[in-house]
Computed example of a mutant assay.
Amino acid sequence: MYRFVKMIQRDFMNLLLNPTWLMFCLGFPFLLVSIIGFMTKGLYGGNFTSYDYYGVTLMFYSALYTGTFSANSFMEERIKQANLRSLYTPISQWEVPLAKTLATFFYTLIFYTFIGCVLMFLFQVNYGTEIFKLWLLFAGTNFASSSLGVLMCCIFKSEGVANQILSIITNIVAITAGLLFPASALGETFSKISQALPVSKVVQMAFQLIYDNNSQHFLITLAGIGIVSVLLVFASQMAFKAEAYL
């Protein structure tokens, strides 16, 4: 367990010391909400502003991008040799992908939480009174995305390929789930399809917590995210092969 914890710490520091990822992690969600919220503020009312909408949806959109961080932590050429040395130490093989998942999860969650606080105070984004439950939904989505990034690396054995596929998946999900704009803007049929998507249900649950104080389906939603995360982690363990680093 000690070696496993040290692996997580080292992977966390690799991400922390990468200025590109640090700027992206801090700047990406903040600029998205700031720019899109400003450009669309005339389309929303006074009680429910554009910042209220995008301060929620675009933070979940950023959480979906966590997979690119875990893919970088897993197979970036700069740190691949350090990962290779880990394979020759007396650790279980399952610890390698799980350490990448957890390090990325902690890294992004800390900075995304900070950005959420900045948005709340700078743009008065409404996160409601059930903010801890809202944070748990966000954290669960973040962990699931981190697990997906590691799985993509285990399958394709390439950071570049994994990130290309993750970007496509993330943007398709974001558009169809209404994270970039309200799904109702594309018509009733698209709206019905959007509401049936798992990510849409998570975001709907988030808005219910904020504006209705309705947590009736919170545990079911959180459990669903947890099940997906466990399945992705298990799939990563099955797909990971040490020779992928050779």
Rank of each mutant, 00 (worst) to 15 (best):
A139S: 15
G160K: 14
K41P: 00
F38E: 11
I36Q: 11
N47V: 10
L231Q: 06
K192T: 14
V118G: 07
V125A: 08
A244T: 11
T20D: 00
T57G: 06
T66G: 15
L119A: 07
V203R: 04
G42Y: 02
A174N: 02
V161S: 11
A206N: 03
Q164F: 15
S86I: 07
V56C: 02
L15S: 04
T89C: 10
F12S: 04
V230Y: 12
L232M: 13
K133T: 08
L98H: 01
Y88G: 05
L87F: 09
L222C: 04
F207M: 04
T101Q: 08
P97K: 06
T189A: 13
L186W: 11
I220E: 14
T101P: 06
A183M: 05
I210Q: 09
F111H: 07
G46W: 08
H217E: 15
K192D: 14
A177R: 02
S50Q: 05
M120T: 12
F48P: 00
L179D: 07
S50H: 04
L179M: 14
V230W: 12
H217G: 07
Y107S: 06
V199K: 00
R10V: 12
F234T: 15
I155Q: 03
G187T: 14
F156P: 00
T66D: 10
T176K: 01
L16T: 04
V33A: 08
L109G: 00
F106G: 01
